[in-house]
Each structure stands twice: as C-alpha cells, then as structure tokens.
Design a protein around this nucleic acid. Sequence first.
RNA 1: GGGCAGGUUCCAGAGUGGCCAAAUGGGGCGGACUGUAAAUCCGCUGUUUCGACUUCAUAGGUUCGAAUCCUAUCCUGCCCA
Length: 427
Amino acid sequence: MNLIEELRWRGMVQDIMPGTEEQLLKEMTTAYVGFDPTADSLHIGSLVPILLLVHLQRAGHKPLALVGGATGMVGDPSFKAEERRMLDLDTLARNQAGIKAQLERFLDFDPSKPNAAEMVNNFDWFRDISFLDFIRDVGKHITVNYMMAKDSVKRRIEGDSGMSFTEFTYQLIQGYDFYHLYTAKNCKLQMGGSDQWGNIVTGTELVRRKANGEAFAFTCPLMKKADGTKFGKTEKGNVWLDARLTSPYTFYQFWFNAADADAENYIRIFTLLDKAEIEELIATHRQTPEQRLLQKRLAKEITIFVHSEKDYEFAVKASELLFRNDTADVLQSLTESQLLDVMDGVPQVEVNAADLSAGKDIVTFLADTAILPSKSEARKMVQNGGISINKLKVEGIEKVVDTTLLLNQKYILIQRGKKNYYLVTVK
RNA sequence: GGGCAGGUUCCAGAGUGGCCAAAUGGGGCGGACUGUAAAUCCGCUGUUUCGACUUCAUAGGUUCGAAUCCUAUCCUGCCCA
C-alpha cells in the first residue's frame, strides 16, 4: 500500500489535490503540517496531524513540523464564530518551546537520515517582513474576492460578530508559509485538518502564481464523535499530551471510554497497528462489545505511544481499583505504597492535620479543598448522592470528615460522581 | 460620517417598572439503569453564615422600587455615504 492508500483506508483523507498521490510516488517529498501555539502543550486533537507526519515519515518522505509563532499572533478565523483573544509574546514563546519539545518525541529528527524530520517556526521568516513588503509581494497575488469566497470565513462574514482585518489576513499569512517552505526547503505538500483546506489552497495558489511552481495538499477529516459532540474534551477540559496537564491515568481513561462506534475509527487513526490486526479486533469487538476489547487495546496503544509502557501499566492498575465495585474493603487493606502507586495521576489535595482532628462537615470540607467550587455546589452534590468517601457513599450533609476516615493514618479518597477521584493527604 | 437594529445568567433566546436570580431550549454536572457505553428516566445548574448578598455591555441618573425608563460611553450587525 502506498501512503495515500494507507491513509485512505484509515479514514484519514478528506480532500486531496489532484496529482498528490503521483507526486508522493515519484520522489521523496517534503511535506509540512502547522501547529498553533495556543497553549504550551499539544492536545489530542493535534495527534491526528502528528500521525500524518508519522505515516509520512514511515513511508520515506520528509516531515516538517511548523510551529506557528507568527500565525499564532494573528489567530485563525476558520469556521470559528468569534475572534480569538490575542496571546502576548511571552506566552507565545513559551508555547512554542513546549510544543517543540513534544513533537520531538513522535518524529525521527536524526539528521543523518535523508528524511529526517525538521522543525520550523514561521516567526523566523515573518519577523523581518514589513507590512508594506508583504502587501506588495504577497497581497498583490490574491484577490479579496477569492479570500472572501472561502467557506472557512463565511461564518464570520455572514455572522453577527464580524471579522477584523487582522483575522482576514490569516489565510495570506499561512499561504505565504507554504510559499516560503516551497522555495526555501523544496516543500511541495501541505497536510492538515479539513478546516485548513481553505488556507492550504491559498498556499498552493501562491506557489503557483508567485513561484510558478506546483504544490500539493490533502486534508484529514476533523475528528468527530458518533454522538456529534466535540472530540477531545472531558468534563475537565482538553485532553493534553503533557503528563503534567493530563495524567496518564486520565489520558488512558479518555480512550477507554470511547463509544463503540468511535473506537472503530479511532483505532485506525490513532494507532499504527496494521490492517489485518485492526480488522480482527473490530470483528471480535462486535461480537462481545461488553468486554471493551477494542477500547482497551486502543487506550493501551495510544498511552504507550504518547507516554510510556510504565505509565500504561499504572493506568490499568489504577482503573481496576477505582472501578471495581467491591473495593471498599480492598482499599482499607492497601499499604501506603500500594495506595500511592495506584493513585498516581489522581489529583491530590492537601489538608491540615489540625483541621481534620477537629472534624469538618462534609460541605465545608469539599469547598475548602476545592474539590467543588462552592459550598452550595458541594451541598447539592452531596444531596444528590454524588459524593463518596473511601468508596462509600455519603448519605447526607451532616456527615463529618475527621481522622477516623484516614487510610494509613494520612489519606482520604474522595469520589465525585462515578469517575472523579481526589486523594486527600494530611499535612 | 448618517440612519436603523441590537448587547440578558455557559450558549441560544424570552422578559419592556414591582409577581425576576430572571421563562424555554441546548449544554454541563449528579443519580437510577448499564458494558466505566448508548438510549431512557429523575434531580441540580449565581453566591450564601439561608437572614440575605452580587448579577441582565459600562458609568451615571429618574423612581418607594429598574434587566426593563433617561443620559453618556464602549462594542456588534444591517443600510446609506
């Protein structure tokens, strides 16, 4: 299977420019994907473009990862209802560094290889371009009519919040990136999410008009969930690749909880397992969906890919303890190191020994420890039966939290809802 | 620059002087059921020492009383120039 066939089978090709497949078969091709420095870590939404680069490199081509230092200063309006808030320069610099460090993990940057991955930052070439130069050299080639016709900006043009000129410029800036990489690094292909199609095509257009060259592109469908909700979010927000922002346990749980219909797509997109193995897994899963074999395998593969084998094992161990039903007794019998092992990655909360020996009512306790944001929410949660201590449900708001509840003389396990755990440690 | 229409709680969107912490829908959270699923059903969804307190773009004002009326400012959309 060639690269495009492989990606097609995995469901990773949405739009493709004619000639792209031929180009990839003809020679080692340099291709790039852009990453937005909106945070100092990538999240699992970025995993799809990362995997595009991984597949590309495995197929013998040369991947470029572009960090959008310049584009991040402007903000991509594509399909967004409202303008994004601007990031200050320090934040951007920090974010770029964080993202760069993460990408290094997934791609082979060994310079001795002909198709070594490279990292580029578009701030490096935009820094020295003046506004006048830009509008004369680049703006001349693209009409406003062309730019406005893009679906990606339609929502903003027709909507009721407007679009600033800054944002409107975005597609030209991104388009120029492609032109620059084409001339500087012989980069002939851009990939990205399908929401980037408009921006990408502006780039190929610039390459054609300004450099009289031919550039190619394809996009990958945006991740969607079968129930139509947004991919990549949990109750707590984004699922990040950085273990400090999303623990490996939470990360593992995210994939483990994938709906059946989604898991079949995810395993093709997010793992590098081959076709035969994936088809077999799916077939088995359809027969016994309640065993969640597909989700387990999916979660395993990605957790190891993004974190490590060790992190994966912890996550499994913790999941078993936290989700088995009869574990109130087991919990009591754990030694301190066993407990800490399993709770690795569960948010930890500290509390004063003095406070606890005096005893605190459950509502105050939950609010003080910030497990719930306010007393009224804490009260409602307890009254709804949403709080458990050491795997035992709290029956009413009269419940007092004191030292009698301590596990190993220093821990209390608080559970909010079914899936949210907090380990309270006495200081 | 001119005219018109707007800015309401997470979102959409009611409310045009007291009955408004503010309808309804969505989303979110919790519970039951389950496969740590989907669907369904139920509860909650500004804060609180439960007496109150702070909210309806911002700042002033009228009134016993304002999200609702007045003035100024900021922002957005549409139309005209």
